[in-house]
Design a protein around this nucleic acid. Structure first.
Lengths: 214, 214
DNA sequence: ATAAATCCTGACCGATCGGTCAGCTTTGTA
DNA sequence: TACAAAGCTGACCGATCGGTCAGGATTTAT
């Protein structure tokens, strides 16, 4: 029986949850090859055999986590239109990516590791989804530029700029913390960094804000 | 005898060169744990034992490469002064980081992997060097803001923005190539991306350019 | 020519890798 | 209560890991 809509957590659900969290942590830190099932099992507080009993194989576990990350990612900024306000959309874009960095940093680092490896597990179909995502948004940015609502910057480079600048606070958190004497990045840090990025990027693209400010 | 100033390459120099290049490639792709000496040896076309004969241990090899990267990095933008032109300095900063991404992408990815791991090999002294580098430049940016030469943006966030946006073209090259249908990033891509970043960031910080343009 | 230093490598070491499996315990159902 | 299904795990497999070492091959110095 699958009580898939009952709130009670079965043994399987409970353990898979613990395994996923532990695995995300270890994969994010050491990459696919560098992560060991033993280390994941230890982090989850579960015997190695039990981990394999639930997830089948290292490969399957990794791909599951990767797809989960992609899914979360693609859900972002799903309803953008040419008629929206450019400043509002760019701000929403930056803020939501920044929130992902804050709430799911290990997810972000797992993805970064996959790319550094040369994206061997990212099927063409998944890259295809991202391509469509990018092209759709880029098209909107282009329209805005044509209407004079922002400078005619390359919209694809703009998307990469926002990705990189926001992901940096998840992927390179260790470096930021080490350089700025912090113990960790807190709510205020993400807020102020988000403010900074919104200000610089929106102004840098020559977006005219509704309130008349430049 | 050490012919350390003779141009002839000794067997040691030749082999170390090949090993370093191969190792940088493998470490950049798979991280410290994920890289195997066997794989490095194969990439260098040298028996595993011979690799260990030259470099001593995996740890030592990795640290050597990491220090080499840090050295290259710290040499950047070494002579910045409050009296320099903000736009010129920012442009030089972005261009030189962009050139590093173009000419030493594996170096950049090696470093990215080290940070993702939590920087276990980056001694406090090395982080200290980076901290001094950042604080010195941040101080200059602050002065410029006080003199009204640019907006009063957080100078540390600005440095991280430039780091992340430029490194992205090395660390996430696979993703960029996959999404934009390219085979690889070429000279023109780096040029146009560099142009874009200079334009957006300098304008975004409210830097007044000498020629009067905004 | 010959001794010394360096270069080079196959064989091997214990540890750990991902994964399998027999067989145990616990849970759910009739 | 009884039986099936699911949960669980120690022992084990061949492969690979980082590293050592004896000893042969080659180069260098005298």
């Amino acid at each position: 029986m699958d009580n898939h809509d009952l709130p009670e957590a079965t043994a399987r659900e409970r353990n898979e949850q613990r395994i996923f969290e532990a695995a995300e942590s270890v994969f994010a830190r050491h990459g696919y090859r560098g992560a060991s099932i033993q280390a994941i099992a230890a982090a989850a507080g579960i015997p190695k055999s039990n981990v394999l009993y639930y997830v089948g194989s290292k490969r399957r576990l990794y791909i599951t986590l990767l797809e989960r990350t992609m899914w979360r990612w693609n859900a972002m900024l799903s309803d953008i239109s040419v008629d929206d306000d450019p400043a509002e959309v760019l701000e929403a874009f930056i803020r939501s990516k920044m929130r992902l960095s804050q709430t799911h940093p290990r997810s972000s680092r797992l993805f970064a590791n996959e790319i550094l490896q040369g994206a061997p597990f990212l099927k063409e179909s998944l890259f295809g989804e991202m391509r469509e995502w990018v092209e759709a948004r880029a098209e909107v940015f282009r329209h805005w530029a044509e209407r004079g609502l922002m400078d005619p910057v390359d919209p694809v480079w703009l998307i990469f700029l926002i990705w990189s600048a926001t992901q940096h606070y998840a992927d390179f958190e260790t470096q930021i913390v080490g350089i700025t004497h912090r113990e960790k990045l807190d709510e205020r840090d993400f807020q102020s960094a988000g403010d900074f990025l919104c200000q610089v990027i929106i102004k840098g693209c020559g977006v005219r804000r509704r309130d008349g400010a430049v």
